[in-house]
Amino acid sequence: MSTYKIWFNRWFSVAYHYIDMIRNNEDGIKFEVYGTHPDADHVMLANCDYSEVEPKFDTDGEYVQYCLDFCRKHGIQLFVPRYKMLPIAKALDKFEELGVKVLVNRDAELLEAIDNKDDFYEICREKGLFEIPSFYTAKTPEEFKDTYEKLKNEGLGVCYKPVVGEGGYGFRIIDDNVDPLKEVMAPSYRIPFQRVYDGLKAAGEFPELMVMEFLEGEEYSIDCLAKSGELIAAVPRRKGGGRIRILENNKELIELAEAFTEEFKLDYIFNIQVKYNQGLPKLLEINPRMSGGLYFSCLSGVNFPYLAVKLLLGEKVEKQETKLDIKATFLEKEIILS
Protein backbone atom coordinates (compact mmCIF):
# COMPACT_ATOMS: atom_id res chain seq x y z
CA MET A 1 0.00 0.00 0.00
CA SER A 2 1.37 3.40 -1.01
CA THR A 3 2.01 6.23 1.47
CA TYR A 4 0.48 9.63 0.75
CA LYS A 5 2.39 12.82 1.42
CA ILE A 6 0.00 15.31 3.04
CA TRP A 7 0.78 18.92 3.99
CA PHE A 8 -0.84 21.22 6.58
CA ASN A 9 0.11 24.90 6.27
CA ARG A 10 -0.12 27.36 9.17
CA TRP A 11 -2.99 25.68 11.00
CA PHE A 12 -4.40 26.16 14.49
CA SER A 13 -2.92 24.05 17.28
CA VAL A 14 -5.93 21.67 17.07
CA ALA A 15 -4.50 20.37 13.78
CA TYR A 16 -2.40 18.18 16.08
CA HIS A 17 -5.60 16.18 16.70
CA TYR A 18 -6.62 16.14 13.04
CA ILE A 19 -3.25 14.73 12.01
CA ASP A 20 -3.74 11.89 14.52
CA MET A 21 -7.24 11.21 13.17
CA ILE A 22 -5.98 11.01 9.59
CA ARG A 23 -3.12 8.72 10.58
CA ASN A 24 -5.36 6.44 12.66
CA ASN A 25 -7.84 5.79 9.89
CA GLU A 26 -10.12 2.78 9.56
CA ASP A 27 -8.71 1.80 6.15
CA GLY A 28 -5.10 1.47 7.27
CA ILE A 29 -3.91 4.00 4.67
CA LYS A 30 -0.46 5.42 5.47
CA PHE A 31 0.31 9.14 5.47
CA GLU A 32 3.58 11.02 5.69
CA VAL A 33 2.66 14.35 7.28
CA TYR A 34 4.33 17.67 6.42
CA GLY A 35 3.68 20.86 8.36
CA THR A 36 4.72 24.50 8.07
CA HIS A 37 4.20 27.50 10.33
CA PRO A 38 5.97 30.82 11.00
CA ASP A 39 6.42 29.75 14.64
CA ALA A 40 9.11 27.07 14.90
CA ASP A 41 7.65 25.98 18.26
CA HIS A 42 4.06 25.66 17.08
CA VAL A 43 2.62 22.48 18.59
CA MET A 44 1.21 21.19 15.29
CA LEU A 45 4.73 20.81 13.94
CA ALA A 46 5.57 18.39 16.77
CA ASN A 47 3.13 15.90 15.24
CA CYS A 48 4.55 16.07 11.71
CA ASP A 49 7.06 13.77 10.04
CA TYR A 50 8.64 16.81 8.41
CA SER A 51 8.30 20.46 9.45
CA GLU A 52 9.55 23.77 8.17
CA VAL A 53 9.32 27.41 9.28
CA GLU A 54 7.35 29.51 6.79
CA PRO A 55 9.11 32.66 5.59
CA LYS A 56 7.30 36.00 5.63
CA PHE A 57 5.62 37.09 2.39
CA ASP A 58 4.21 40.49 1.42
CA THR A 59 1.57 39.38 -1.10
CA ASP A 60 -0.90 36.56 -1.68
CA GLY A 61 0.82 35.76 -4.96
CA GLU A 62 4.17 35.25 -3.25
CA TYR A 63 2.59 32.94 -0.69
CA VAL A 64 0.82 30.86 -3.35
CA GLN A 65 4.12 30.51 -5.21
CA TYR A 66 5.75 29.32 -1.98
CA CYS A 67 3.02 26.69 -1.68
CA LEU A 68 3.53 25.52 -5.25
CA ASP A 69 7.29 25.35 -4.75
CA PHE A 70 6.86 23.45 -1.47
CA CYS A 71 4.59 20.89 -3.14
CA ARG A 72 7.00 20.44 -6.04
CA LYS A 73 10.07 20.16 -3.81
CA HIS A 74 8.58 17.56 -1.45
CA GLY A 75 6.35 15.64 -3.84
CA ILE A 76 3.19 16.59 -1.90
CA GLN A 77 0.09 14.74 -3.06
CA LEU A 78 -2.55 16.14 -0.65
CA PHE A 79 -2.61 19.74 0.59
CA VAL A 80 -4.84 20.82 3.52
CA PRO A 81 -4.63 24.64 3.63
CA ARG A 82 -6.00 26.89 6.37
CA TYR A 83 -3.97 30.06 5.79
CA LYS A 84 -4.69 31.91 2.51
CA MET A 85 -7.39 29.45 1.44
CA LEU A 86 -8.98 31.86 -1.04
CA PRO A 87 -5.82 32.72 -3.04
CA ILE A 88 -4.95 29.00 -3.03
CA ALA A 89 -8.45 28.12 -4.31
CA LYS A 90 -8.03 30.63 -7.12
CA ALA A 91 -4.82 28.84 -8.17
CA LEU A 92 -6.18 25.27 -8.01
CA ASP A 93 -5.33 24.56 -11.64
CA LYS A 94 -1.63 25.20 -10.92
CA PHE A 95 -1.66 22.72 -8.05
CA GLU A 96 -3.48 20.15 -10.19
CA GLU A 97 -0.80 20.52 -12.87
CA LEU A 98 1.65 19.30 -10.20
CA GLY A 99 -0.64 16.37 -9.33
CA VAL A 100 -1.62 17.93 -5.97
CA LYS A 101 -5.15 17.50 -4.62
CA VAL A 102 -6.17 20.45 -2.42
CA LEU A 103 -8.76 20.15 0.35
CA VAL A 104 -10.64 23.32 -0.56
CA ASN A 105 -13.89 23.96 -2.38
CA ARG A 106 -13.42 24.43 -6.11
CA ASP A 107 -15.85 27.36 -6.37
CA ALA A 108 -13.52 30.27 -5.54
CA GLU A 109 -16.30 32.82 -6.16
CA LEU A 110 -18.41 31.15 -3.47
CA LEU A 111 -15.46 31.15 -1.06
CA GLU A 112 -14.93 34.84 -1.75
CA ALA A 113 -18.59 35.56 -1.00
CA ILE A 114 -18.42 33.53 2.22
CA ASP A 115 -15.29 35.45 3.24
CA ASN A 116 -17.28 38.70 3.08
CA LYS A 117 -19.94 38.34 5.77
CA ASP A 118 -21.92 41.34 4.51
CA ASP A 119 -22.26 39.90 0.99
CA PHE A 120 -23.00 36.40 2.19
CA TYR A 121 -25.71 37.53 4.61
CA GLU A 122 -27.46 39.19 1.67
CA ILE A 123 -27.15 36.03 -0.45
CA CYS A 124 -28.63 33.90 2.35
CA ARG A 125 -31.40 36.44 2.96
CA GLU A 126 -32.38 36.39 -0.72
CA LYS A 127 -32.46 32.59 -0.78
CA GLY A 128 -34.43 32.41 2.47
CA LEU A 129 -32.04 29.80 3.85
CA PHE A 130 -31.30 31.32 7.24
CA GLU A 131 -32.69 33.88 9.59
CA ILE A 132 -30.21 36.75 9.40
CA PRO A 133 -29.40 39.08 12.32
CA SER A 134 -30.26 42.75 11.82
CA PHE A 135 -27.05 44.44 10.71
CA TYR A 136 -25.48 47.45 9.04
CA THR A 137 -21.94 48.12 7.83
CA ALA A 138 -19.70 51.00 8.81
CA LYS A 139 -16.51 52.38 7.26
CA THR A 140 -16.24 55.58 9.32
CA PRO A 141 -16.73 56.46 13.01
CA GLU A 142 -19.88 58.45 12.15
CA GLU A 143 -21.35 55.52 10.21
CA PHE A 144 -20.56 53.32 13.19
CA LYS A 145 -22.39 55.72 15.53
CA ASP A 146 -25.40 55.98 13.20
CA THR A 147 -25.75 52.22 12.77
CA TYR A 148 -25.32 51.66 16.51
CA GLU A 149 -28.13 54.11 17.21
CA LYS A 150 -30.41 52.51 14.57
CA LEU A 151 -30.08 49.10 16.22
CA LYS A 152 -30.58 50.54 19.72
CA ASN A 153 -33.73 52.30 18.48
CA GLU A 154 -34.99 48.92 17.27
CA GLY A 155 -34.68 47.71 20.87
CA LEU A 156 -31.74 45.43 20.09
CA GLY A 157 -28.47 44.73 21.83
CA VAL A 158 -25.48 45.62 19.63
CA CYS A 159 -22.19 43.93 18.76
CA TYR A 160 -19.68 44.32 15.95
CA LYS A 161 -16.98 42.45 14.06
CA PRO A 162 -14.94 42.95 10.87
CA VAL A 163 -16.78 42.26 7.60
CA VAL A 164 -13.78 40.14 6.56
CA GLY A 165 -12.21 38.12 9.33
CA GLU A 166 -11.78 34.70 10.84
CA GLY A 167 -13.18 33.24 14.04
CA GLY A 168 -13.74 35.65 16.92
CA TYR A 169 -11.14 38.18 15.77
CA GLY A 170 -12.44 41.72 16.36
CA PHE A 171 -15.79 40.63 17.86
CA ARG A 172 -17.05 42.86 20.69
CA ILE A 173 -20.36 43.40 22.49
CA ILE A 174 -21.25 47.03 23.21
CA ASP A 175 -22.22 47.34 26.85
CA ASP A 176 -22.40 50.70 28.61
CA ASN A 177 -22.84 49.00 31.97
CA VAL A 178 -19.38 47.45 32.09
CA ASP A 179 -17.75 47.95 35.49
CA PRO A 180 -14.62 50.07 34.72
CA LEU A 181 -12.56 48.23 37.33
CA LYS A 182 -13.66 44.84 36.02
CA GLU A 183 -12.80 45.94 32.47
CA VAL A 184 -9.27 46.84 33.57
CA MET A 185 -8.71 43.81 35.80
CA ALA A 186 -10.46 41.17 33.69
CA PRO A 187 -10.74 42.24 30.04
CA SER A 188 -13.67 40.71 28.20
CA TYR A 189 -15.55 40.95 24.91
CA ARG A 190 -17.74 43.72 26.37
CA ILE A 191 -16.85 47.36 25.80
CA PRO A 192 -18.70 50.69 26.25
CA PHE A 193 -19.88 52.52 23.12
CA GLN A 194 -17.90 55.70 23.82
CA ARG A 195 -14.65 53.77 24.13
CA VAL A 196 -15.25 52.13 20.73
CA TYR A 197 -16.28 55.40 19.08
CA ASP A 198 -13.29 57.32 20.45
CA GLY A 199 -10.94 54.51 19.42
CA LEU A 200 -12.25 54.47 15.85
CA LYS A 201 -11.90 58.25 15.58
CA ALA A 202 -8.35 58.07 16.89
CA ALA A 203 -7.47 55.28 14.44
CA GLY A 204 -8.62 57.26 11.41
CA GLU A 205 -8.82 54.19 9.17
CA PHE A 206 -10.10 50.73 10.12
CA PRO A 207 -11.46 47.60 8.41
CA GLU A 208 -15.13 47.77 7.43
CA LEU A 209 -17.25 46.65 10.37
CA MET A 210 -20.55 44.82 10.66
CA VAL A 211 -22.59 46.49 13.40
CA MET A 212 -25.26 43.99 14.24
CA GLU A 213 -27.92 42.64 16.54
CA PHE A 214 -26.44 40.84 19.53
CA LEU A 215 -28.01 37.39 19.81
CA GLU A 216 -28.75 36.40 23.39
CA GLY A 217 -29.43 32.67 22.98
CA GLU A 218 -27.41 29.47 22.67
CA GLU A 219 -24.58 29.31 20.13
CA TYR A 220 -24.04 26.24 17.95
CA SER A 221 -21.39 25.08 15.51
CA ILE A 222 -22.58 22.54 12.95
CA ASP A 223 -19.66 20.51 11.59
CA CYS A 224 -20.51 19.17 8.14
CA LEU A 225 -19.08 16.64 5.69
CA ALA A 226 -20.46 16.77 2.15
CA LYS A 227 -19.87 16.05 -1.52
CA SER A 228 -21.68 17.34 -4.60
CA GLY A 229 -24.60 18.79 -2.66
CA GLU A 230 -25.14 15.71 -0.49
CA LEU A 231 -24.70 16.04 3.26
CA ILE A 232 -22.81 12.97 4.49
CA ALA A 233 -22.65 13.90 8.18
CA ALA A 234 -23.67 16.84 10.38
CA VAL A 235 -23.02 17.29 14.10
CA PRO A 236 -24.57 20.26 15.94
CA ARG A 237 -22.21 21.21 18.77
CA ARG A 238 -23.25 23.58 21.57
CA LYS A 239 -21.10 25.41 24.08
CA GLY A 240 -22.09 24.66 27.65
CA GLY A 241 -20.72 26.42 30.71
CA GLY A 242 -16.93 26.79 30.86
CA ARG A 243 -15.26 23.96 28.98
CA ILE A 244 -18.40 21.89 28.43
CA ARG A 245 -19.35 20.99 24.85
CA ILE A 246 -22.54 19.13 23.93
CA LEU A 247 -23.13 17.18 20.72
CA GLU A 248 -26.86 17.69 20.35
CA ASN A 249 -29.39 15.82 18.24
CA ASN A 250 -30.95 19.07 17.03
CA LYS A 251 -33.12 18.14 14.05
CA GLU A 252 -33.79 21.79 13.14
CA LEU A 253 -30.08 22.52 12.72
CA ILE A 254 -29.38 19.28 10.83
CA GLU A 255 -32.15 20.19 8.39
CA LEU A 256 -30.64 23.67 8.01
CA ALA A 257 -27.28 22.06 7.20
CA GLU A 258 -28.96 19.82 4.59
CA ALA A 259 -30.66 22.79 2.92
CA PHE A 260 -27.43 24.81 2.92
CA THR A 261 -25.45 21.92 1.42
CA GLU A 262 -28.02 21.32 -1.31
CA GLU A 263 -28.09 25.00 -2.24
CA PHE A 264 -24.39 25.89 -2.16
CA LYS A 265 -22.77 22.49 -2.74
CA LEU A 266 -19.74 23.13 -0.56
CA ASP A 267 -17.50 20.07 -0.75
CA TYR A 268 -15.48 18.15 1.82
CA ILE A 269 -15.68 19.78 5.23
CA PHE A 270 -17.15 23.01 6.56
CA ASN A 271 -18.72 24.55 9.63
CA ILE A 272 -21.93 26.57 10.07
CA GLN A 273 -22.18 28.83 13.10
CA VAL A 274 -25.61 29.96 14.33
CA LYS A 275 -26.95 31.57 17.47
CA TYR A 276 -30.50 31.56 18.72
CA ASN A 277 -32.54 34.66 19.49
CA GLN A 278 -36.19 34.48 20.55
CA GLY A 279 -36.34 30.83 19.51
CA LEU A 280 -34.88 31.35 16.01
CA PRO A 281 -31.43 30.14 14.89
CA LYS A 282 -29.71 33.04 13.13
CA LEU A 283 -26.61 32.73 10.98
CA LEU A 284 -23.30 33.97 12.37
CA GLU A 285 -20.87 32.72 9.74
CA ILE A 286 -19.70 29.87 7.53
CA ASN A 287 -16.17 28.46 7.90
CA PRO A 288 -15.27 26.53 4.71
CA ARG A 289 -12.67 24.39 6.54
CA MET A 290 -12.20 22.18 9.58
CA SER A 291 -13.35 24.12 12.63
CA GLY A 292 -11.34 24.64 15.79
CA GLY A 293 -13.72 22.42 17.77
CA LEU A 294 -14.09 19.65 15.20
CA TYR A 295 -12.29 17.14 17.41
CA PHE A 296 -15.31 17.25 19.75
CA SER A 297 -17.66 16.44 16.87
CA CYS A 298 -15.55 13.38 16.08
CA LEU A 299 -16.82 11.90 19.37
CA SER A 300 -19.98 11.22 17.34
CA GLY A 301 -18.12 8.31 15.73
CA VAL A 302 -17.44 10.21 12.50
CA ASN A 303 -13.75 10.70 11.64
CA PHE A 304 -14.35 14.01 9.84
CA PRO A 305 -10.70 14.81 8.94
CA TYR A 306 -9.94 11.41 7.44
CA LEU A 307 -13.26 11.11 5.59
CA ALA A 308 -12.69 14.55 4.05
CA VAL A 309 -9.29 13.34 2.82
CA LYS A 310 -10.91 10.15 1.54
CA LEU A 311 -13.38 12.25 -0.49
CA LEU A 312 -10.45 14.31 -1.80
CA LEU A 313 -8.84 11.08 -3.00
CA GLY A 314 -12.00 10.39 -5.02
CA GLU A 315 -13.18 7.52 -2.81
CA LYS A 316 -16.85 6.88 -2.04
CA VAL A 317 -17.96 7.81 1.48
CA GLU A 318 -21.36 6.58 2.62
CA LYS A 319 -23.78 8.69 4.67
CA GLN A 320 -22.63 8.47 8.28
CA GLU A 321 -24.57 7.43 11.35
CA THR A 322 -23.83 9.78 14.25
CA LYS A 323 -23.94 9.22 17.99
CA LEU A 324 -25.25 12.44 19.51
CA ASP A 325 -26.48 13.79 22.86
CA ILE A 326 -22.92 13.53 24.20
CA LYS A 327 -21.52 15.91 26.82
CA ALA A 328 -17.73 16.36 26.80
CA THR A 329 -14.95 18.55 28.10
CA PHE A 330 -11.18 18.85 27.61
CA LEU A 331 -7.95 19.34 29.51
CA GLU A 332 -4.41 20.39 28.75
CA LYS A 333 -1.83 17.87 27.60
CA GLU A 334 1.92 18.30 27.72
CA ILE A 335 3.78 18.00 24.39
CA ILE A 336 7.59 17.76 24.20
CA LEU A 337 8.90 20.02 21.44
CA SER A 338 12.60 19.25 21.68
Rank of each mutant, 00 (worst) to 15 (best):
A203H: 11
L156D: 05
P192A: 07
P187I: 12
I326Y: 08
L256R: 10
L86I: 15
F135D: 02
Y34A: 05
L247G: 15
V164L: 07
G157K: 13
R245T: 02
G199P: 07
V164I: 12
H17M: 02
K90V: 01
M85P: 00
G229H: 12
N249Q: 09
Y306Q: 00
F193H: 07
E154C: 06
F171M: 09
G75K: 08
D39F: 14
D118A: 04
L284G: 01
L111A: 14
R82V: 09
F260R: 14
I174F: 08
M21I: 02
F8A: 01
F130N: 09
M210P: 05
S134F: 11
G35F: 08
T3N: 10
G292C: 08
F70Y: 14
G241M: 13
I244T: 04
D198Y: 04
P192F: 12
P236V: 09
M44F: 14
A226I: 03
V104H: 06
A328R: 07
F270T: 00
G35I: 04
V104Y: 11
R72W: 03
G99H: 04
L129I: 09
G75D: 07
L86V: 15
A257N: 09
A328W: 12
C159W: 10
E126N: 13
L129R: 01
S228E: 15
P162C: 03
R172W: 01
L284Y: 01
V317Y: 08
R243P: 02
F120R: 01
G229N: 09
E142H: 15
R190G: 06
L103G: 03
V100G: 02
P236Y: 13
I269R: 00
I232S: 08
E318I: 06
N24V: 04
V164N: 09
K150L: 14
F206K: 15
F206D: 15
M1N: 13
